[in-house]
Design a protein around this nucleic acid. Structure first.
Lengths: 236, 236
DNA sequence: CCGCGGCATCAAGAAAGCGTAAAGGTGACC
DNA sequence: GGTCACCTTTACGCTTTCTTGATGCCGCGG
């Protein structure tokens, strides 16, 4: 699901940065580093999964970064600070940070708190569009469900993967090779016959007139395509 | 925005309890108190918006309560403890707690951290239903109880976790991997046979005709699904 | 008119996935 | 130390799904 999670570390002391980098690397995270507020803002555009922010930055209050982030995204922010004063904590947390660690802290605790924060953001779900519609055909990815005019249609695993692929790229042609590689694996890119067979069953299940398909279109010599109703129909 | 938010305080020292109550009252929360683990579990059925948990309880480890809560809901849990050892924190946070405060702590910080936790759960959507029904099958999470047509059915721990997972996502397919990871742990995601065996026992206990299940549905090649009575029925 | 290439369809055997029963194995609790 | 409940593991028959080869269709160029 989540391949490699990126953590943005905003910290000016090189020593501390090295510790954090090696620790997080060891946990399987990819680490991006920034040494200042400005750098942090720049780096945050890579949409990290989490931000680790040291408050004692040279070019301004880390609070600014928290507010700035909250202005446009919900990425979890864990603040690290030497200042243990309660008023500081309250200010930072109320600004939108998700946790506050006081130096010195243990590495294990940091990792545990990172896990907590990622757990939260994972529960919020990704930004991806979970449903694709093409005319009467509706593909619901999280439910693994396909309906035609509202009635559920049962698809076999291969059929679903095939349709899902076409639906995710609705409107554009997917070549034989591409479809075969994604559905059957790289070793099957020559078995174009698989495609014909399974496209036929898909059409039988989804099309009104399987012999004259209206949604699952053949692009002769190239591949297949799911008609995108939002775009102009292809020229006859 | 939300009318009156309930906070469950699980704490055995009356003195500490009084401090917390007055503080939280002053912030506009409604406070429910519990002096022991058992009381805490009982009180949690009122679906509080947040749980404040002191680890030093007389009748057992507070860790138990965290695990128990996570078994059926995501209510934010903030743990308060006199023990500041890092290993303790990691254990509790990994068990599912959302934050860990070491005594002594400032009231303002506590409030700030409560705000953070509530912010998170608000983003997730409010407190969850403690009970899910699917046709004659009724799953009561806090009581750990399952009934069919009103009669209690005894489920083994694994069976309950399996059913609970399906019930919490009623209507949508849960993949083999997902179910195995959540019920048996990440190391078992390949033992799909476990699923078959335990789904069989579940069906024997819950279905009228276990051989032709009406609620615990197989999604061939993908996973399993609990039929959501709110949605359209399947075609034959 | 005929042959050819790309495509659709059909059907049968092979393979994979699923359900059930029952035999060990393990730990808890007297 | 024996019983009990539960989980794991093995075995086997059944069903669904996939693969594979055969056949027919259609348009195009020769």
């Amino acid at each position: 699901m989540t391949g490699e999670q990126i953590i943005l570390v905003v910290e000016d002391e090189p020593q501390m940065r090295r510790v954090l980098r090696t620790t997080l690397d060891g946990q399987g995270f990819r680490v991006i580093e920034a040494g200042s507020l400005a750098d942090g803002m720049r780096a945050a555009r890579d949409t990290p999964a989490l931000v680790l922010l040291d408050l004692g930055l040279p070019d301004g209050d880390g609070l600014e970064l928290v507010r700035w982030l909250r202005g446009w995204c919900r990425v979890p922010v864990i603040v690290i600070s030497a200042r243990g004063r309660e008023a500081d904590k309250v200010r930072v947390l109320d600004a939108g940070a998700d946790d506050y660690l006081t130096k010195p802290f243990g590495v294990a605790e940091l990792i545990a708190r990172i896990r907590v924060a990622l757990r939260h953001s994972a529960a919020l779900g990704g930004p991806e569009e979970p449903v694709v519609e093409a005319g009467p055909i509706r593909v619901d990815f999280p439910r693994h469900e396909v309906t035609v005019d509202g009635v559920a249609v049962h698809l076999t695993p291969i059929e679903f993967r095939l349709l899902a692929l076409l639906a995710r790229h609705a409107g554009q042609v997917l070549t034989h090779r591409m479809l075969l590689r994604e559905v059957w694996g790289p070793s099957a890119i020559e078995h174009t016959h698989y495609l014909r067979v399974h496209m036929a069953t898909l059409r039988r299940k989804l099309e009104v007139d399987p012999a004259r398909p209206h949604w699952l279109l053949t692009e002769p010599g190239v591949g297949y395509r799911l008609r995108d109703p939002g775009r102009a129909a292809k020229p006859t």
